[in-house]
Design a binder for these strands. Structure first.
Lengths: 163, 163
DNA sequence: GAACACCCTAAAGTAACTACAGGGTCAAGC
DNA sequence: GCTTGACCCTGTAGTTACTTTAGGGTGTTC
């Protein structure tokens, strides 16, 4: 099958497949001699699906490498796999704890201003300018490897009006 | 004051201060004519502290720009500020929902293997290879702008043993 | 005058993609 | 035979918010 079909089956963009090949995560495909198109088989789909499943669990490529390596050694102990999952779970939980704290701070902050008033009187800016005793100071910037709150599609334009 | 002192007061690395200046987030400092060192005053510290406080709330630079802009217009309505905080709060909450789902999946996954056995028999790999009915298919990859679970200090080495 | 803490710039690296430029391939329809 | 459109290719740059590295000047102290 061609790359488009593979990507469709795995539910990911074609560019991501090529990217995984460049990274070595996915084995290089055989090429069709006449047109240089990549030709894939079911074992590629298998591996890609595995990778995507791990990514949907928010694992890093490093973690996925470790799992793929482990898969290659069916006789070895699976202890490292268990540890990897445990560690990753801790990361996820740590990030949730951070986000819970953040949520609390944002709710506090939002409660400073309910009406639309003049900016000079806005309780939110006032609070950001001169925080009260609401336990500020970077809640838990010891980021744990599950990252922030912003998707890559967030706009980051300043000044110019939105189109 | 010099950059080192400013950074210390704001609790951030010196490089970050220079980076903010390059980005325009922080106004360029006056330079000492004799040695070209940056010289800061309290208003710089004020603005930097504001920025860092917003960052500790996981806002993007775009969001911070919006708040800084709003601060410049004390007579305008603060409605956009309220909306910004509301939207950001939704991002944070959306990410928490995603992570909760992730946590559930990881706990399920982990429960597939308790003992250290041969990799070929590991329930975790088995599950990753051929997922059961545990409601797979990328839980909520509609990332909401508060990102994943991995800190930048996470190692991503493959193959070579850890030093 | 050497050591050491501090400052400077410019460029590259980080994670995991995504997007873009510029171009070839192939099947269908006119 | 030619165009249209869907698909494929490579290579490079952009994304976010920094961090790191390389290479070098400044200022104070011993």
């Amino acid at each position: 099958m061609q790359i488009g079909e593979l990507a469709k089956q795995a539910g990911c963009p074609v560019e991501t497949v090529r990217y995984y090949e460049r990274e070595g995560l996915l084995h290089a495909a055989v090429r069709n001699e006449s047109n240089n198109y990549r030709q894939y088989n079911l074992s590629h789909l298998d591996r890609l699906t595995f990778i995507r499943r791990c990514r949907s669990l928010d694992m890093t490529h490093g973690e996925i490498w470790a799992l793929l390596d482990a898969r290659q050694q069916p006789d070895a102990s699976c202890e490292s796999i268990n540890e990897l999952i445990d560690t990753h779970l801790l990361h996820v939980q740590a990030r949730m704890t951070e986000l819970r704290a953040l949520e609390g701070q944002l709710i506090d902050l939002r409660s400073q201003c309910h009406a639309a008033r003049a900016t000079r009187d806005c309780g939110i800016l006032r609070e950001l300018d001169h925080p009260g005793d609401t336990a500020w100071r970077s809640p838990a910037l010891t980021h744990s490897h599950v990252s922030g709150s912003h998707s890559s599609s967030d706009a980051h334009n300043h000044g110019e009006k939105q189109k």
